[in-house]
């Protein structure tokens, strides 16, 4: 109970923070506000970066740019995965075989490379990265859905519903698919952390939005040289990534405990 509540609060807080990020930011993240490499002070809470831009504003904008695309990726890949998993479980036979092998293929090939290749083909940018990652992220959800739907097919209420004349589409959506929802929800929440890290990885490699856009991974990458002298410049975005990932992990654990 408490775990579930903590989970929801954590997720809600992150979403609110991410949504309000641009409003809370004290300065324009693209403009210089002072000399570069300023230490954190009352005027600039996280100091300034190597260009002289307000680091706090950049981090807040960066969190927004990490959070919402991640939500989109999770949503799409869960939707694609659930649909394909349910389809395979319901159809059975060769349809199921093909879909199962397909999801195996995507699992075996390092998804990072497929996503990188896709971005190389369609160009870099935040939403290009979102599309590329969504295309390779679905197999996990497909497998969860397929396994839950198949497990529940053996339960008596499915037979009873069949006898009662429930048609296959309604049988799948109202009777079998809900079995997968708890697992899917937990999986999605735990997955958020991975997606945030993956997006940061993309922007670290320069495949996200181009500079000077405030993207957490890219910010950390570009300021690595300053790690030993002005450590707050690379650490602030890295810590922001950590906070996002940690909050979602906490939420996922809480949800899992609540469902058990």
């Amino acid at each position: 109970m408490i775990a579930g509540r903590v989970a929801c609060i954590a997720l809600g807080a992150m979403t609110v923070l991410a949504a309000l990020g641009p409003l809370l930011a004290p300065a324009n993240p693209l403009l210089r506000v002072d000399v570069p490499y300023l230490e954190p002070s009352l005027q600039h809470w996280l100091g300034t970066d190597e260009i002289g831009r307000d680091l706090l504003s950049r981090v807040l904008y960066g969190m927004t740019r990490a959070w919402f695309p991640s939500l989109v990726i999770i949503f799409f890949s869960a939707a694609i995965g659930t649909a394909l998993g349910a389809l395979g479980a319901a159809a059975g036979g060769w349809v199921d075989l093909v879909l199962d092998r397909l999801s195996e293929l995507f699992t075996v090939i390092p998804s990072t490379f497929v996503a990188l290749a896709t971005v190389a083909a369609i160009g870099s940018g935040t939403w290009h990265a979102v599309l590329a990652i969504s295309l390779v992220w679905w197999p996990w959800y497909a497998r969860i859905t397929r396994s839950e739907v198949r497990n529940v097919a053996a339960r008596p209420f499915v037979s009873a519903a069949r006898l009662a004349g429930v048609r296959p589409p309604r049988l799948l959506t109202r009777y079998q698919l809900p079995a997968a929802f708890p697992s899917l929800l937990v999986a999605a929440t735990l997955d958020m952390a991975n997606v945030i890290l993956m997006l940061s990885f993309f922007s670290f490699l320069g495949l996200g939005a181009p500079a000077p856009a405030p993207e957490l991974g890219a910010m950390a990458a570009r300021s690595m040289v300053s790690l030993t002298t002005h450590w707050w410049i690379p650490l602030a975005p890295a810590f922001a990534i950590f906070v996002l990932a940690f909050a979602t992990n906490l939420a996922g654990d809480g949800l899992r405990t609540a469902f058990e």
């Binding site: 339960r155 008596p156 209420f157 009873a160 109202r174 009777y175 809900p178």
Partner: peptide, 8 residues
């Protein structure tokens, strides 16, 4: 109990 779906 198992002959009813818990979600409806």
């Amino acid at each position: 109990i198992g002959s009813f779906s818990p979600w409806l």
